[in-house]
Design a protein around this nucleic acid. Sequence first.
DNA 1: CGCCGTACGGTTTTT
DNA 2: CCGTACGGCG
Length: 748
Amino acid sequence: MVTAEHILEDLNAPQREAVTTIAGPLLILAGPGSGKTRVIAHRIAYLVDVIGVAPWRILSVTFTNKAAREMRSRVSAHLGEAAGDLMLGTFHSICARLLRTEADRIGLNRQFNIYDDADQMSLMKRACEYANVDTKRFKERAILGAISHAKSELVSPETYARQARDYFGEVVARAYDTYQQLLVENGALDFDDLIVRVVEMLQNHEGLREKYQERFLHVLVDEFQDTNIAQYQLARLFAGKHPNICVVGDPDQSIYSWRSADIRNILNFERDFPDAKTVLLEQNYRSTQNILDAAHAVIAGNKQRKEKSLWTSAGGGEPIVAYEAYDEAEEADFVANEIATLVEEERRPYGEFAVMYRTNAHSRALEEALIRTRVPYALVGGTRFYERREVKDVLAYMRLVQNPHDAVSFTRIVNVPGRGIGTKTLSELDRWAREREVPPYTALQLIAEQENAGAGRSGAGARPIGAKQTRTLIEFQEMIAELQNVAEKNNLSTLLDGVLERTGYRKYLYAEFDEAEADERWENIGELRNVASEYDGLSAGHGLVSFLEDVALISDADTVPDTDDPHSGRVTLITLHSAKGLEYPVVFMTAMEEGVLPHIRSFDDAMQMEEERRLCYVGMTRAKQRLYLIRAFKRYGMGSSSHNPPSRFLKDIPQQLIAQRSAVRSQHEAVERGPSRFREEFARRDERPPVPEELVYAGGERVRHPRFGEGIVVSSQMVKDDQEVTVAFKGEVGIKKLMLSFAPLEKL
DNA sequence: CGCCGTACGGTTTTT
DNA sequence: CCGTACGGCG
């Protein structure tokens, strides 16, 4: 038996307060590295062990599945097996579980499939088609964004239509209505629906509402600053009977507003629960004072924030290293070399390092450099496993087996491997089905019956498509029916094998791709089979449901290697967003440039700019001992290269915290041992003539460029120790910005 | 009618 | 640079 003293030892005063304030609403504002995960775990242990709350009556919501696993293992350190009964997970996973449990009572198809981003897009295209949306004028992505946002605020299609004030709003309203109908027809829920449907369930079914409100004595929500309106509403509903709701968050770390996370939730919490107690966790146990001061200097640049102090008893620590590389290849080289040096000089395992970047595309150069230097790494995100084509294909077959009305999965694989079913056949089938107001798969069954009865081409119900295609489609439908049969009687890997065998998927891969690529793709299928075999212990139907659900709800951050595993000897490559909640002794933040961080798309919006700043703050505060802020003088992106000035956030960091590292040393190294491409680049850089200190070109001058042809100078300006000349070239080339030191311009 | 080639456009972050 | 859209061919 664990005592209260044992749970509370090693906690500071506010942490203790956060653990022991158990009755009524509680708002914990926790700065980075303030031990909030630990506090939540201890709070749960305290509730169970000291107060005597049954674990299954505690609902604890985390941001990722990984965080949920971590929480469970922390709690079980105190409680042992009892931790297994906790209701623990992300909003999405908890809602999916609840919806399956209550499906029959709320008239929901228990076999519902969960649609991810790509599935939603595919459905959206159909919705736009049916709703006659001019997709040239209004992009599907924008419409989907508006719909998703509406759902996050619990706005129904009807309400949306009523509130629509402009033409775009009317278009979205039409698409929204159609899109929701299609989801129902397909027996599918998208991510937003998972939340919305549970909120509706609790609002509309008194019995179920009472059941869950009675059950949950305590509700905890972590990363509260990143919840949306619907999620907050859901948490409130769960805590409707016992208002013991504890939310934990940090407004300075709110980085998901683009996903409809709403910072107003924190303000509303204080309004909705006027008797709420607030606890501030401000002592930082993670970073050195230098890192903390630098991070604070950055976040202090935001106007929309409440000042809070951050302090640590740890000393000043190493200075923050700032470095300007020549281009992204040299930037990556610097990171790889620096890691190698620290591994050697400070005996640090690779698992202590993380390299962070704003966009996934930036991982490429880093990977190349790490491979070259033989530094082991783990890439988080990027082209995710479950997004690979072959994996999605096989999953689509399995989803179709679970729910044949899933038209998104159907369209995906009806012609994979190629069976000679093209767009024309599919649209005819679709038209035929809609005429009769039946789902496409039912239409297929009808056609099959009709053919078997010998009706053929004549008569009132004549088949909509050619004989050959009809036969192929019937064979396809029969195959799915057979696989459903397999699924009912066998475990999951048998079903997967059945899919591979009946579709001839392996043969298809080797026919479609060259051997190396086919090998790789087939290996991915093997990996998927390994995952599937973990569900073999479950009963036939249940295995498929859980597998598909887990696959749909798995996230990037769930694949982050565990840092506490001493053998996880790998450097972590990760986006700034995915790094939230993590910490590393050594952190490299790359591409600290205007246009990247802050991202160019946030330039004209003050709110978005503040979010970029918070993102920068989140990245910096991941570092425990050493922090590197790196940028490149020149960066390649989508074909062309560009020069980005240093990020504005760098300017906010006091100079005395920073050690500037010159690029010279590394440049020479690269010239000596680097591949020829780098040698050429550096040679060219060294050769370039010194840039004159006065502007060389004035507006109106005529110039010639070897590739762009003739043009007229629009303007020119000094940029650091170089000159940027804006030239309007003739013809299709248009206006270009050129750096004088690189552009071979010629006066005419 | 389906398949394969070329042109073009868009381009952050992810539960 | 990558995925999609469209046009010609089999």
